[in-house]
Amino acid sequence: MTLPALVGLVVLLAALVFIGAALARLSRPINTEGHSGDEQLIEKVNNLLPQTQCAQCGHPGCRPYAYAIIKQREPINRCPPGGDRTIADLAELLGTTALPLDSSCGEQKPIQVAIIDESVCIGCTLCIHACPVDAIVGAGKLMHTVISDQCTGCELCLPPCPVDCIDLVSPATSTSDWQWPRPA
């Protein structure tokens, strides 16, 4: 190897080291700003989740799950209430492939609402505390009732009930939310 070649090599290496250092410097302050980018992304993911707050995904709510999807690379197929449609939407947003629903989280069920058997209810308020979306009203020693419009069907009120008076039923089709059938 000749001297000029060595010089060139050194120059090349020096230039690369310099550029590498510059890039490292450049990327540092931006990283903290990248944080807010993640926030936007979490918000977008959160918007796609069904907001049942059912915790079937193993996170204490929809937003924590969204956080986990973005920050901890949690799989997107852990939301039974959202089912295939939510998974497809998430896959499209995040540019990944849609996976089948993780059955360890639960299965997709048709829309349900909780209903309290008012003759059995003892007014213990345990379900009121369990409801993540404040859809149960009532007071101590008085019977409780579910506001069926606000109920997300998350089933979280079932375990705490000491007298087992809560059932999940499919809401009656009313004329206002009747849908045209899918043509064959």
């Binding site: 907001q51 049942t52 707050q53 979306v133 404040d134 606000q150």
Partner: peptide, 16 residues
């Protein structure tokens, strides 16, 4: 409608 319901549920969840 589902979306709107979800938004409302989220709001209530946040409030809670």
């Amino acid at each position: 409608e589902q979306n709107q319901k979800a938004d409302e549920a989220e709001q209530r969840f946040k409030n809670r």
